[in-house]
Computed example of a mutant assay.
Amino acid sequence: MISCEFVQYQEKTCSLMLTTQRKKTILEWLARDGQVLAGALAVSFGVSEDTIRRDLRELAAEGLLQRVHGGALPASSAVAAFSERRTLESSGKRAIGIAASSMIASGQIVIIDGGTTSAELVKHIPHSLSATVVTHSPTVAVALVDHPSIEVIMIGGRLYKHSIVNVGAAAIEAMSHIHADIYFMGVTGVHPTAGLSTGDLEEAYVKRALAARSAETVVLASMEKLNSASAYAIGDLTLAQTIVVEGLNDPVLTAALETAKVSIVRA
Results as ranks from 00 to 15, higher is better:
His179Val: 08
Ala72Met: 04
Phe82Thr: 00
Gly235Glu: 02
Ala204Met: 07
Ile155Val: 13
Gly186Tyr: 00
Val43Tyr: 13
Leu16Tyr: 09
Val140Leu: 14
Glu11His: 15
Leu210Ser: 15
Asp181Cys: 08
Ser197Ile: 10
Ile52Gln: 11
Pro74Ser: 10
His191Ala: 02
Leu41Ala: 09
Ala40Leu: 12
Ser44Thr: 12
Met175Gln: 03
Ala209Gly: 12
Thr188Glu: 06
Leu37Asp: 04
Ile182Tyr: 02
Val190Asn: 01
Glu224Ser: 15
Ala72Thr: 10
Thr135Ile: 09
Ala141Pro: 15
Leu56Val: 06
Val152Pro: 00
His147Cys: 08
Gly115His: 00
Glu84Cys: 05
Ile164Met: 14
Leu129His: 06
Val145Cys: 14
Ile155Ser: 09
Val134Pro: 06
Asn227Trp: 15
Ser128Asn: 09
Ile172Asp: 05
Thr198Phe: 03
Thr135Val: 14
Gly34Arg: 03
Phe45Ser: 10
Gly189Leu: 04
Gln66Leu: 05
Ile109Ser: 02
Val190Phe: 06
Glu173Thr: 05
Gln10Arg: 14
Tyr9Met: 13
Arg208Ala: 14
Asp113Asn: 05
Arg54Ser: 08
Val122Asn: 01
Leu248Gln: 11
Arg22Thr: 02
Leu64Ala: 14
Leu56Cys: 14
Ala204Glu: 08
Ser149Val: 03
Glu11Met: 12
Ala75Trp: 00
His147Gly: 06
Ser3Gly: 07
Leu210Thr: 13
Ser44Pro: 07
His69Gly: 13
Val165Asn: 01
Glu203Met: 06
Val165Met: 03
Ala61Thr: 09
Asp250Glu: 07
Ile109Tyr: 00
Ile125Gln: 02
Ala42Pro: 04
Asp55Trp: 02
Ala38Gly: 04
Thr25Arg: 13
Ile172Pro: 01
Val145Ser: 12
Ala215Gln: 14
Val219Phe: 01
Arg208Asn: 09
Ala204Leu: 12
Ser163Thr: 13
Ala81Arg: 06
Ala240Cys: 03
Thr51Cys: 11
Thr20His: 13
Ser163Met: 12
Ile150Gly: 00
Ile104Leu: 03
Leu144Arg: 05
Gly156Asn: 06
Val206Ile: 12
Arg158Pro: 00
Ala204Ser: 14
Val252Ile: 08
Ala229Tyr: 00
Ile178Ala: 00
Asp250Leu: 03
Ser15Pro: 01
Val79Lys: 08
Glu84Gly: 01
Leu226Arg: 01
Gly92Ile: 14
Lys207Ser: 10
Ala194Gly: 07
Ile155Glu: 10
His179Pro: 06
Thr254Gly: 03
Gln108Ile: 11
Val190Arg: 00
Asp181Tyr: 04
Thr198Leu: 08
Met1Ile: 11
Leu201Ile: 13
Met175His: 01
Val245Lys: 02
Ala171Lys: 01
Gly195His: 10
Ser263Cys: 10
Arg53Phe: 04
Gln35Ile: 07
Leu41Phe: 01
Leu257Met: 02
Ala78Leu: 15
His136Lys: 06
Ser230Ala: 12
His177Ser: 08
Asp236Cys: 11
Leu239Asn: 06
Val36Ser: 10
Ala171Gln: 05
Ala141Leu: 12
Glu258Ile: 09
Thr19Met: 07
Arg22Cys: 02
Ile164Glu: 11
His124Tyr: 15
Ile111Gln: 08
Ala260Phe: 01
Ile26Glu: 06
Val110Cys: 03
Arg22Met: 05
